[in-house]
Design a protein around this nucleic acid. Structure first.
Lengths: 156, 156
DNA sequence: GCCCGATTATAAGGCTTCCTGAGTAACCTG
DNA sequence: CAGGTTACTCAGGAAGCCTTATAATCGGGC
C-alpha cells in the first residue's frame, strides 16, 4: 500500500471510505445469514421503503437517482425473492405501489440497525464533533454550495 | 431530490460526494476535447502511471485494488487508444512494463491539473481547516483506526 | 542441470448494475 | 374524444468487474 507516496486525492479517499463503510453496513445486514440473497444494489430499493412504504416505481427511481428501468429490475428481483410486492394503485391504474412483505420489513429493520450501528461506529471513531463536521462537509460538497454556517467570505 | 426527508446515512453522503467530485475531475480532463475517448475507469490505470511510469500489470492491479485481468482490460483499451504501451521487461521475460506514450503523458498532466484544481476548489468551498479535517476523517475511516493525532493512550 | 511450485500475463466467459430505445396502457386537459 | 403526458414493461447493450483456465517464465531444491 503506497501510502507514503503522494497524498491521495480527496476523490480517492471518498471512494475508498465509501467502500469501507458500505462493506461494513452490508456485512452487518448479512451477518445473520437470513438475507444472503441480497446484493448491495438492492439496498437502493430497500432503503426507500424503509422510510416510506407503498412508493411507486417512478418515485423510488427518482429518489435513488437511477432510471425507472433500473429500479424496475431491482424491484423485480426483490419481488421474486419475497422481499416486496407490487400492488395496484387504487387511485391510478397505470401505477403500482410497492410494499414491503413481512420478510421485507424484517430486512428493513435489520438494515436500519446496521446503518445505525455504523453511524455510531463512525461517530465513535472520529469523535462526535468530527463526525458531524464530516457530514456537513460532505453535504456541502454535494450541494456545491458554500453553506456558510459560520464562514462566508473567503471566496475572491 | 428528497433532501429534507430524513438524515441520509453517511454512507449515501460519501457516495454522492464521490460522484460529484469525480464528475468534476473527469469533466475537467475532458474539457479540452482532447481526451474524449477516456472513461472514468481508465483513470484507475492512468493514475498509477502518473506517479510511476513503467509499472507491471500485476503491480498496477494491486495498487488499484482490482484484479490483474480487470487492469489488463483497461490497459488493453488504453494501449489501443494510444495512451500507453507495453514493453517487455528486460529483467523478466514473463513480465511487461507499461509506459505512458506522449499522448499518455499529456493526459496525465491534464489529469493531475484537473485533480489539483478540484482539490483547490474543495479547500475553498469548505475552508482550509474543514478541508484538511475532511481528509483526515476519511483516512481514519479507511484505516479503521482511531488515529488520534492528539490523544494517544486510550488503548488498554 | 532438471523438476516443480510460484509468478506474469492473457483468453474466455459470466455477472451485476446500470443505460437507451421503444412500446402499451392509463391518465388528464381542452 | 384527440393529443400529449405519465407509469410501467420489454429488449438489447455497455461498462466494469469477476472467476476459471492456459501458457510462458522464473527460481529454489535435489
Amino acid at each position: 500500500m503506497p501510502d507514503s507516496f503522494s497524498p491521495l486525492p480527496t476523490n480517492a479517499l471518498l471512494r475508498t471510505a465509501y467502500n469501507a463503510v458500505s462493506a461494513r453496513i452490508f456485512g452487518g445486514v448479512k451477518a445473520g445469514r437470513d438475507f444472503d440473497d441480497l446484493r448491495p444494489a438492492h439496498g437502493n430499493a430497500m432503503e426507500q421503503l424503509e422510510l416510506e412504504d407503498g412508493l411507486r416505481l417512478t418515485e423510488m427511481a427518482a429518489r435513488a437517482g437511477i432510471t425507472v428501468q433500473s429500479m424496475g429490475e431491482l424491484v423485480d428481483d426483490l419481488e421474486a425473492k419475497g422481499y416486496l410486492q407490487r400492488r395496484p394503485d387504487p387511485t391510478d391504474r397505470r401505477a403500482k405501489r410497492i410494499h414491503l412483505t413481512k420478510r421485507g420489513r424484517k430486512n428493513a429493520r435489520t438494515a436500519k440497525q446496521a446503518t445505525a450501528a455504523v453511524e455510531d461506529h463512525l461517530a465513535e471513531l472520529l469523535g462526535q464533533q468530527h463526525y458531524q463536521q464530516l457530514r456537513r462537509s460532505l453535504q456541502q460538497i454535494i450541494t456545491g454550495d458554500a453553506r456558510d454556517d459560520d464562514q462566508r467570505d473567503t471566496a475572491a
